[in-house]
């Protein structure tokens, strides 16, 4: 990893910070009623997100899930249209019709997200099939959680990818809880080891809070896929700091307070900052400036989301079909 240029390393930190500050802001906006409904934040999982997204090339595809604010940010999306989408503005990446569950910036290779757990996994597989047929070298990566690891469509997809040697990476973001359910109580065996049954490599990144470890594992999988080696299942162990979704009041502790504290104690952003400074990649001052820059970016995105117009309600009738033949509704 020492071969990575300094600017790439700093960019990793920048994107992790963007995700953290963006989601902190979004969380606040939900609580203040500035975002309708709820959002699912990636706070705590930034290393896992950025390590994976930065291992992809600009032309590569990714598909997300319900916790997908971080994915487009990690792949380089500007923050303004993402924030505007959360608020439901016309300038949002989905014109305000998607919201938090569809922060789908198609400009950065996103294939979209979905609140239906597991449902975007076959979609990434289809994109990978197109890459194989077109022989264009584009890799697809499906993000899904430990909950989705128990949905059948993952295994339907892995079988296809295995038998057809598709350039796809199945990236399990194992944050150890499906809403309130601890993964170990509903998951048989080790997720990464399930790859063996499909004849593909299975890799487990035990320290998913280390962005370089995630980057290394996913880069190897991407390289393998791009060179015709077929799919890989990568399981990354990580942790979400916040509730399953913002504002969700479950009124019960399904997670041990000490457990959360111990994960917060190995914060991916703080540790990577220390690593960058200790290894001479950046100075403390430069890191402070980076924090200031990112905060300003998020503030600008917030302003953009506030100044942007809401879509007209009639827009709800547009785009259902290519020819929009929705008639009068008497």
């Amino acid at each position: 990893m020492s071969t990575l240029p300094n600017e790439t390393l700093v960019e990793m930190q920048r994107r992790m910070l963007r995700i953290r500050r963006f989601d902190e802001r979004a969380s606040k906006m939900v609580k203040r009623g500035q975002i309708p409904g709820t959002v699912h934040t990636s706070i705590g999982q930034e290393a896992q997100v950025v390590g994976a997204t930065m291992a992809l090339g600009d032309d590569d595809y990714m598909s997300g899930n319900h916790r997908s604010h971080g994915h487009p940010i990690g792949k380089g999306s500007p923050l303004g249209p993402l924030m505007a989408e959360l608020v439901g503005k016309a300038t949002g990446v989905c014109g305000g019709k998607g919201g938090s569950l569809h922060l789908a910036d198609f400009n950065v290779g996103s294939l979209g997200e979905s609140g239906i757990v597991g449902s975007s996994i076959p979609i990434a597989t289809g994109a990978a099939l197109s890459s194989k047929v077109l022989d264009n070298g584009r890799v697809a990566l499906a993000f899904f959680g430990d909950g989705a690891a128990n949905q059948g469509c993952l295994y339907e997809s892995m079988n296809m990818a295995g038998v057809w040697d598709l350039p796809v990476i199945y990236l399990c973001e194992n944050n150890q809880y499906a809403l309130s359910t601890p993964a170990h109580t509903v998951t048989s065996g080790v997720i990464a080891e399930r790859a063996a049954g499909f004849g593909m490599p299975g890799v487990r990144v035990e320290d998913g809070q280390d962005v370089l470890k995630v980057y290394e594992a996913v880069s190897a999988a991407v390289e393998n896929a791009r060179s015709g080696g077929g799919p890989t299942l990568v399981e990354v162990i990580t942790y979400r700091y916040n509730e399953h979704s913002e504002g969700l009041r479950l009124g019960t502790d399904y997670r041990d307070a000490l457990e959360r504290e111990s994960w917060v104690g190995r914060d991916p952003i703080l540790s990577f900052r220390k690593h960058l400074v200790d290894s001479g990649v950046a100075t403390e001052d430069e890191m402070d400036q980076l924090e200031i820059d990112v905060l300003a970016e998020v503030e600008e995105a917030f302003e953009f989301s506030q100044e942007s117009p809401f879509p007209e309600p009639e827009v709800a009738f547009l785009d259902l079909y290519t020819d929009n033949p929705i008639g009068a509704h008497a």
Partner: peptide, 15 residues
């Protein structure tokens, strides 16, 4: 409801 997918919640009162 209208013959569309359920709308974003911001405009659900109109739906």
């Amino acid at each position: 409801g209208f013959d569309t997918p359920y709308p974003p919640s911001r405009i659900e009162e109109e739906y």
